[in-house]
Design a protein around this nucleic acid. Structure first.
Length: 651
RNA sequence: GCCCAAGUAGCUCAGGGGUAGAGCGCAUCCUUGGUAAGGAUGAGGUCCCGGGUUCAAAUCCCGGCUUGGGCUCCA
């Protein structure tokens, strides 16, 4: 064979053999070579210098360039190897774990898990990064080698790499590939592809050091994980670093303190939120919106206690399946009680309080129910992960024929509410039973089939595009998860609409049908926010603390220019309060610039600047927090404007 | 829970074996200034907690507590 038939884009040509991927690409497009990091041959990702198989068939070749996702992945994965090589060089005897590129996580670009002879600290990162840069300049070659399993095992055994051996043992059947970085002791068991040499790695940065377990298993070896990121150009890396700093400015913990919204005080307990007056206002408004919707959608409002007898949690199955998440029992008069981690059993109690007819269904109970969960201390995070929180919970008890309509209404509800908050990207995921894996699903097959179909049908009926995920359903029923994307593109899993075949069974729920026989109702758990605390945190970051008028703790601040105007300012403020607005009046002796700055830092939507002119004309000079000065108008005109803005809940 | 780091005034942080510091905020006074910081004075601290080393510890060492970054996108 002296020639190969190669296809590149829509062009095809015979080239002399033997040839590498790079030789082939060169024939068609010399320019693309500058950006090429790897190649695809018949869909398989390979190194650029991979020799093409001698074959009569047409080989389809593509270049993987640095400006594509695949290219970035090659770049990051190669950088992870460079990291490991540098660590090995600086800390001989280091054991290697895995070092993948991270393409979904916006915070990082890659990591490498290691066990170094001594625990590394963050002070080591700059040293390692320096070593990496030095190695990058040396244009060290990534060299691929195909080796038999036994030989690879021997190689890594000899290098005392037990974790690598374990991986090889699991993954390899026959032969496998390893990669060297020439000029470094580093060898990795890896599929590739990689860049040709370290000189291709021009923009990378080490970011963080953390703990990780081998295979994520807390029973296995504790390792250290070094996170970093890499881009094709320094400009892209700089832009990314800058954006990261922007995200930090939105941190809800920082804004929560600056805007006096909430606090967490260890004297009261980790993960327990103290809502301050200003946070309280936001919460009241969030709940007001929900309440209006709940009323219109025929929900009823119920209230239930924070603890219940232990026996109840045995019936519900929480004692058996969820004990780790629950606080220890407490007793009174020899009876044990436990704090509730969920509201469901209480709502079931209400359902069971009288016999139900098919005519009574659906029953829709809603409650802002406060629950307590024993989260591990290390997982706590501001408002996002807490130990006590309130769920905008609802439980619907429905007949099988009502499932679809009820779920459809839940979807409408979610869309309406998230739209109000300005989340225009909402994603829906339908989780159903998986084929092969048996998770010990409860409930009859025909119930599952009908429930899954009802959920899917409800989504289709509302023209919602959704992702169907096999095998992600809970053991007790299929569900729809709702995820939203915030103002800076981060995705948050919030609400869920979940069918439950388990609890109706355990609590022996029933209703009398039109056939005068007893039937078991379906139960739907429905929460939009999941946790009010967490959603509050998401909102703070989404709005960067600048709440829209309807949510803002202080909606208007009145700023008199001199204290001659203080009386007029007070009268304007009290006039607005009469119309239900939250107004402050700043009569300190600061200059107007300072008062404006204060208001701006507090992210108050409207400032009314009042001086002699306004007093004389009976007007207010309006300054909006983003647009700045919008001119003078009568108080009535201003009131009309903000009344419309408030009632539309514009975001 | 585990790995790494941090903990100094209400907040943000500097300092560092021998009188505890700054800016912001707060209070009082002066100033009454037209769209992002006017000035002066003052109050405010168990330098996280416990132990050790030392003539002497906020500082060095050990332990604890809390906070922060993380804890499988598998070669």
């Amino acid at each position: 064979m002296s020639e190969l038939n190669v296809k590149f884009g829509d062009k095809q040509q015979a080239i002399p053999a033997p040839a590498t991927a790079i030789d082939a690409i060169k024939v068609f497009d010399r320019d693309v070579l500058k950006k090429a990091l790897a190649a695809k041959v018949n869909g398989e990702e390979v190194d650029l210098n991979r020799e093409l198989d001698a074959t009569d068939e047409v080989l389809s070749i593509e270049a993987i360039t640095s400006d594509t996702r695949d290219g970035l992945e090659v770049l990051r994965h190669s950088t992870a190897h460079l990291l490991a090589a540098a660590v090995l060089d600086l800390f001989p005897g280091t054991k290697l774990g895995v070092g993948p590129a991270l393409m979904e996580d916006p915070r990082y670009g890659f990591y490498y898990d290691i066990i170094a002879p001594r625990n590394l600290t963050e002070d080591d990162l700059p040293v390692i990064e320096k070593k990496m840069k030095q190695m990058a300049k040396g244009d060290l070659r990534y060299r691929r080698e195909v080796v038999e399993k036994a030989a690879i095992l021997d190689l890594f055994k000899g290098r005392e790499e037990p974790l690598k051996c374990e991986l090889i043992d699991e993954k390899v059947d026959g032969s496998a590939t390893i990669y060297h970085i020439d000029g470094s002791p580093f060898i990795d068991f890896c599929l590739g592809p990689h860049v040709q040499h370290t000189g291709k790695l021009k923009a990378f940065k080490l970011l963080a050091l953390s703990g990780a377990y081998w295979k994520g298993d807390a029973e296995r070896e504790q390792m250290q994980r070094i996170y970093g990121t890499a881009f094709a150009t320094q400009e892209e890396l700089d832009a990314w670093v800058k954006q990261r700093e922007e995200a930090e400015k939105r941190d809800h913990r920082k804004l929560g303190r600056e805007l006096d919204l909430f606090s967490i005080d260890d004297d009261y307990g980790q993960g327990l939120i103290l809502w301050h007056p200003k946070g309280g206002i936001v919460r009241m408004e969030m709940e007001r919106l929900l309440r209006e919707e709940l009323e219109q959608r025929g929900y009823s409002f119920v209230f239930t206690p924070h603890i219940a007898k232990r026996k109840l949690w045995t019936i519900s199955g929480h004692e058996e399946n969820y004990a780790d998440g629950m606080y220890a029992p407490t007793s009174i008069e020899d009876e044990e009680y436990r704090l509730k981690p969920m509201n469901c059993p209480f709502h079931i109690g209400i359902y069971k309080s009288s016999p139900r007819s098919y005519r009574d269904l659906p029953q829709r109970y809603s409650e802002m129910g406060t629950v307590y969960r024993a989260e591990l201390s290390g997982t706590l995070h501001g408002l996002m992960r807490v130990r006590g929180f309130s769920v905008d919970d609802a439980h619907l008890f429905v007949r099988p024929d009502q499932v679809q309509a009820e779920v459809a209404d839940c979807l409408d509800f979610a869309i309406k509410v998230f739209d109000t908050y300005g989340f225009d990207k909402v994603k829906f995921e339908l989780s159903v039973r998986g084929g092969a894996e048996n998770k010990g699903y409860l409930g009859a097959d025909e119930d599952w089939a009908s429930a899954e179909e009802s959920l899917a049908q409800a989504l289709r009926e509302r023209n919602i595009t959704y992702e169907r995920i096999e095998g992600e359903a809970a053991f007790y029923g299929p569900k729809i998860d709702i995820k939203i994307e915030d103002a800076i593109g981060r995705v948050w899993q919030l609400g869920t609409i979940q069918l439950d075949f388990n609890l109706p069974e355990r609590f022996e729920l029933e209703y009398t049908g039109d056939d005068n026989l007893k039937h078991r109702p379906f139960m739907i758990h429905r929460a939009l926010f999941g946790s009010i605390e967490r959603f509050f945190g998401v909102l703070i970051e989404h709005y960067a603390g600048a709440f829209p008028l309807w949510l803002a703790p202080v909606q208007v601040t009145v700023l008199p220019i001199t204290d001659r105007i203080n009386d007029y300012a007070d009268s304007v403020a009290s006039e607005l309060r009469k119309s239900g607005f939250r107004v402050e009046s700043n009569t300190k002796s600061d200059k107007i610039g300072a008062k404006i700055r204060d208001a701006q830092m507090q992210k108050i939507p409207y400032m009314l600047i009042l001086g002699d002119q306004e007093l004389e004309n009976g007007q207010v000079a309006v300054r909006e927090r983003k647009q700045g000065d919008v001119g003078a108008m009568s108080l009535d005109e201003f009131k009309e404007k903000i009344t419309a803005e408030r009632s539309s809940r514009a975001s």
